[in-house]
Simulated assay, not measured.
Amino acid sequence: MRVVMFGYQTWGHRTLQALLDSEHEVALVVTHPKSEHAYEKIWDDSVADLAEQHGVPVLIRNRPDDEELFARLKEADPDVIVATNWRTWIPERIFNLPRHGTLNVHDSLLPAYAGFSPLIWALINGEKEVGVTAHMMDEVLDAGDIVLQRAVPVGPRDTTTDLFRKTLELFGPITVDGLDLIASGRTDWVKQDRSKASFFHKRSTEDIRIDWSWPAEVLDRLVRAQSAPYPAAFTHHRGKRLEILAARVSEGRYGGTPGRIFYREDDAVVIVAGADARTGRNHGLAVERVRTEDGRELSAADYFTTMGGYLTDRP
């Protein structure tokens, strides 16, 4: 089939490479301009560079809402559009333009975790598996009929970086396999159960600020969710920002006030956690490695030279 691709960053790069390696013809690529936004500088393999290396015409757009773009799309005469990690709304006159519509590839098991940063949110929430969905685009974001889904398990100590690498391997194959199903004449796609849908916003500074009233199990997942190269989860100590780079749930149970710097446990320092920490029934967060406001990385044992005092969410 003749394909136009809307894509961005490493997800789009990997999808485009799979399309170029397939029997389908890539007629045009539309991608976003290079960004200096912190999250968009992560996994930023260039879709434009890859397309140009293979002689595929490229259009750079923040939003696909101008007449020149629409004219170029009609001229390309696609059988189908493929969208992967496209960051802005695609209007109906574009996603319905191709003969077979638009296949969107999203890194969650829809209908759950539509929207932004699904792997991070899923890890924080303790999901047992994550995956990728290829679905037909309609007027509701990430809500169209499902063509294919593929899942991978979440390991007990996986980070978002681990999950990114696992799911990235699915993008190319699910796209090509989805296109093959469309080309075969199949239209019996699976309707999404909207009662099970969830939609997540873009992550920001507030989403990586540690709240010590959360249970240690959730804080452990937050730290792993904000693994490098993502911005690290952070707290404050003596008025200065302190990033938590590595941690685990403590072996022992510790009572008191959330945020208390309390006890050395092996190579870690335990911070009291949980809204009901006063009961003494909670595990704490055993912090293993930190990064100070001036960029120094230290083991928790080297940083916390004495016990006592508190970590807080604000300076």
Rank of each mutant, 00 (worst) to 15 (best):
D188K: 01
D142S: 14
D138G: 15
F116T: 05
R165N: 15
L163I: 10
G115I: 00
G178D: 05
A286N: 13
V269I: 13
T84S: 14
R281P: 00
L20R: 07
I174Y: 07
I261C: 08
V56H: 03
G185W: 08
E288C: 09
D145L: 04
L59I: 12
G172M: 05
D220M: 05
T257R: 13
H100V: 00
R14Q: 15
R224M: 02
Y310W: 11
S250N: 04
V147E: 06
D193S: 05
D107S: 13
P231A: 07
H100P: 01
T31H: 03
R2A: 10
V152S: 09
T175Q: 08
G239Y: 03
A228R: 10
V4S: 09
E206R: 15
H283V: 00
N96I: 00
E36Y: 12
H37C: 11
L219N: 03
R194H: 14
V4D: 07
F262H: 14
T10W: 01
P64G: 04
R314C: 05
I81W: 01
V29K: 04
A83D: 00
V140D: 15
W86K: 08
R253H: 08
D207C: 06
R314T: 13
D145I: 06
D49Y: 10
D162Y: 08
T31L: 03
V223G: 03
H135L: 11
T102H: 05
V80S: 02
T31A: 03
N104K: 01
E217I: 02
A232S: 14
L222G: 06
F95I: 03
T187C: 01
A48H: 09
V26L: 08
S35H: 09
R260G: 01
W212D: 02
H24M: 13
T161V: 07
F171M: 09
H135P: 12
D77T: 04
E75C: 06
W11P: 11
R278M: 06
G274R: 05
T205Q: 11
P33M: 05
D49Q: 15
D177Y: 07
A233R: 04
D177I: 00
I60Y: 07
F70Q: 10
D162L: 03
D302F: 06
S213C: 08
Y8M: 11
D49R: 15
V223N: 06
A183P: 12
W121G: 02
V249K: 07
L119D: 03
T102C: 15
